[in-house]
Simulated assay, not measured.
Amino acid sequence: MTVESTTATHGVTLSDEAATKAKALLDQEGRDDLALRIAVQPGGCAGLRYQLFFDDRALDGDLAAEFGGVKLVVDRMSSPYLDGASIDYADTIEKQGFTIENPNAGGSCACGDSFN
């Protein structure tokens, strides 16, 4: 009897630039046990706020996908809010850092820190 192992994936994508930057940050820390986690939490002036951080925990119901050697995880409660979202990284004179484009966001606050 063969048992197949399947990993549930999420609908979030990580651009090549974002994966390269995340991998460089992980390499700089000397850690290969961390995943990049994106989550949605209550907060901000529009009602919901993104959380993007490196995490060494595995939560029950996590959905995962790998991009350029970086494991991107989403918890099952955040997944419906993030399906179809993309994470990018920019390093220009106008903008620097990770950005999240989310087709599920109906609107955002003026500061861009939260959405609804």
Score class of each variant (00 low, 15 high):
residue 78 S to G: 12
residue 78 S to K: 03
residue 78 S to E: 11
residue 78 S to L: 12
residue 78 S to V: 07
residue 79 S to P: 00
residue 79 S to R: 01
residue 79 S to M: 07
residue 80 P to R: 05
residue 80 P to T: 07
residue 80 P to I: 06
residue 80 P to N: 12
residue 80 P to K: 15
residue 80 P to D: 08
residue 80 P to W: 02
residue 81 Y to T: 00
residue 81 Y to F: 02
residue 81 Y to N: 15
residue 82 L to A: 11
residue 82 L to M: 02
residue 82 L to N: 11
residue 82 L to S: 10
residue 82 L to G: 02
residue 82 L to K: 00
residue 83 D to K: 10
residue 83 D to S: 13
residue 83 D to T: 14
residue 83 D to H: 09
residue 84 G to W: 08
residue 84 G to N: 13
residue 84 G to H: 02
residue 84 G to C: 15
residue 84 G to D: 09
residue 85 A to T: 06
residue 85 A to V: 06
residue 85 A to H: 04
residue 85 A to Q: 10
residue 85 A to D: 11
residue 86 S to Q: 13
residue 86 S to T: 01
residue 86 S to I: 02
residue 87 I to A: 04
residue 87 I to H: 01
residue 87 I to M: 06
residue 88 D to Q: 14
residue 88 D to F: 09
residue 88 D to R: 13
residue 88 D to I: 00
residue 88 D to H: 09
residue 88 D to C: 08
residue 89 Y to N: 07
residue 89 Y to I: 07
residue 90 A to L: 03
residue 90 A to P: 09
residue 90 A to S: 15
residue 90 A to M: 07
residue 90 A to C: 13
residue 90 A to I: 01
residue 90 A to E: 13
residue 91 D to H: 09
residue 91 D to W: 03
residue 92 T to W: 12
residue 92 T to A: 07
residue 92 T to Y: 05
residue 92 T to Q: 02
residue 92 T to S: 08
residue 92 T to G: 07
residue 93 I to S: 15
residue 93 I to A: 10
residue 93 I to F: 01
residue 94 E to Q: 11
residue 94 E to P: 04
residue 94 E to Y: 09
residue 94 E to V: 00
residue 95 K to R: 11
residue 95 K to I: 09
residue 95 K to Y: 03
residue 95 K to F: 05
residue 95 K to S: 07
residue 95 K to C: 06
residue 96 Q to N: 15
residue 96 Q to E: 12
residue 96 Q to K: 15
residue 96 Q to P: 07
residue 97 G to D: 13
residue 97 G to L: 07
residue 97 G to K: 14
residue 97 G to H: 11
residue 97 G to Y: 01
residue 98 F to M: 14
residue 98 F to H: 09
residue 98 F to L: 08
residue 98 F to C: 06
residue 99 T to R: 15
residue 99 T to N: 13
residue 99 T to V: 11
residue 100 I to K: 00
residue 100 I to G: 12
residue 100 I to H: 01
residue 100 I to N: 00
residue 100 I to L: 13
residue 100 I to F: 00
residue 101 E to Y: 10
residue 101 E to H: 09
residue 101 E to P: 00
residue 101 E to W: 08
residue 102 N to I: 04
residue 102 N to C: 10
residue 103 P to S: 10
residue 103 P to A: 04
residue 103 P to N: 08
residue 103 P to H: 03
residue 104 N to R: 15
residue 104 N to E: 14
residue 104 N to W: 05
residue 104 N to F: 01
residue 104 N to H: 09
residue 104 N to Y: 06
residue 105 A to K: 08
residue 105 A to Q: 14
residue 106 G to Y: 01
residue 107 G to H: 08
residue 108 S to N: 11
residue 108 S to D: 01
residue 108 S to R: 09
residue 109 C to V: 11
residue 109 C to N: 13
residue 109 C to T: 01
residue 109 C to P: 10
residue 109 C to Q: 06
residue 109 C to I: 00
residue 109 C to R: 05
residue 110 A to Y: 01
residue 110 A to D: 03
residue 110 A to C: 06
residue 110 A to L: 05
residue 110 A to P: 07
residue 110 A to R: 05
residue 110 A to M: 14
residue 110 A to E: 09
residue 111 C to T: 11
residue 111 C to Q: 01
residue 111 C to Y: 05
residue 111 C to D: 03
